[in-house]
């Protein structure tokens, strides 16, 4: 299809608007992260800081005892461990379940039951689980977060993957089955590769959901051994001496890992989603 010149101009204008709307808030976050506290409280607002100050970033990468850097970097480590492990477990348990729902219909109420747990306000689970983890000595331990996050991720990993498998034709599996492949082989060698992209999409969703979780982490962790990024950020924002610049810097850095993964996975994500992975 060829576009008229007007249409082309309209497209570019719209794209420019879109880019601006996404970038502007983030750019402001960046400006705050390099501005002096006094610059930010000047009226009328000074958009570009007189003297860019990158010291906050330097502070976040220092490894001295008790420094902001140590808090940030250990939270980063904990977040990576928790998000990656919870995602891996959720995929390992969710993929077979999704496959079962997709290929052996008739158990849908079970899927809905699982989704209902996802609808509960987190407060419901928090106190009883606190007791359990405390009895097991798992408080302030990334393990407890991994366990809880699994139950958050599983319902929708299962759901997403089920619709992914639904779009893989049964015929190609039947061919392999005739050749004598067992179920495990069929799933790992045929179905999953075809649905690889939807798996990537489900993984990214799961990863970001775990990366973002705040409330459980706030109550279950108490120091650098287990605190995750959202909790560390809330800590930076607390206390009666809020350094907005530091919060902005931490926020930007915290977004970096998922953004990098996202950029990296973008191609497979798009094709994965387009393979019908999230069809209802």
């Amino acid at each position: 299809m060829r576009r008229s010149l007007t249409a082309t101009i309209l497209v570019y204008v719209a794209v420019a608007l879109f880019v601006a709307s996404i970038l502007a808030p983030v750019a402001w976050l960046f400006i705050m992260s390099i501005s002096d506290a006094n610059d930010l409280t000047t009226i009328p607002l000074r958009w570009i800081p007189e003297q860019p100050d990158f010291s906050r970033y330097a502070r976040l990468f220092s490894l001295e005892e008790g420094s902001a850097g140590l808090t940030f970097l250990s939270a980063l480590r904990n977040s990576v461990i928790v998000a990656v492990s919870a995602t891996a477990i959720a995929l390992a348990a969710g993929i077979p379940a999704a496959y079962s729902f997709s290929r052996y219909p008739g158990r849908m109420p079970l899927l809905y039951a699982v989704i209902v747990t996802y609808m509960m306000p987190p407060v419901v689970l928090i106190l009883p689980l606190y007791k359990v983890f405390s009895a097991l000595g798992l408080l302030n331990n990334v393990t407890s977060l991994i366990i809880v996050y699994c139950t958050i991720l599983l319902p929708f990993v299962t759901w997403l993957m089920k619709s992914g498998f639904d779009s893989v034709p049964v015929e190609i599996e039947q061919a392999a089955s005739i050749d004598g492949a067992n179920l495990f082989q069929i799933l790992t060698r045929i179905t999953l590769p075809v649905a690889a992209a939807s798996t990537g999409a489900a993984a990214l969703f799961a990863l970001l959901l775990a990366w973002d979780e705040f409330f459980y982490a706030l109550l279950y962790t108490s120091d650098t051994r287990a605190k995750t990024l959202p909790v560390a950020i809330a800590d930076f924002a607390a206390g009666r001496a809020t350094d907005y610049g530091l919060i902005s810097a931490v926020g930007l850095l915290a977004a970096l890992p998922p953004v990098l993964i996202g950029f990296f996975l973008q191609k497979s994500l798009l094709s994965g989603l387009s393979a019908g992975s999230v069809k209802g």
């Binding site: 879109f18 996404i22 983030v26 990366w211 973002d212 705040f214 926020g251 977004a255 998922p258 950029f263």
Partner: peptide
């Protein structure tokens, strides 16, 4: 491709950061 990749940015920003950011805005 680059513009499409921008879609990931807001999504990757932790909710806590998003909330603090808008409060400041």
């Amino acid at each position: 491709t680059l513009v499409r990749a921008l879609l990931i940015l807001p999504w990757a920003l932790p909710t806590i950061v998003n909330a603090v950011m808008w409060r400041l805005i």
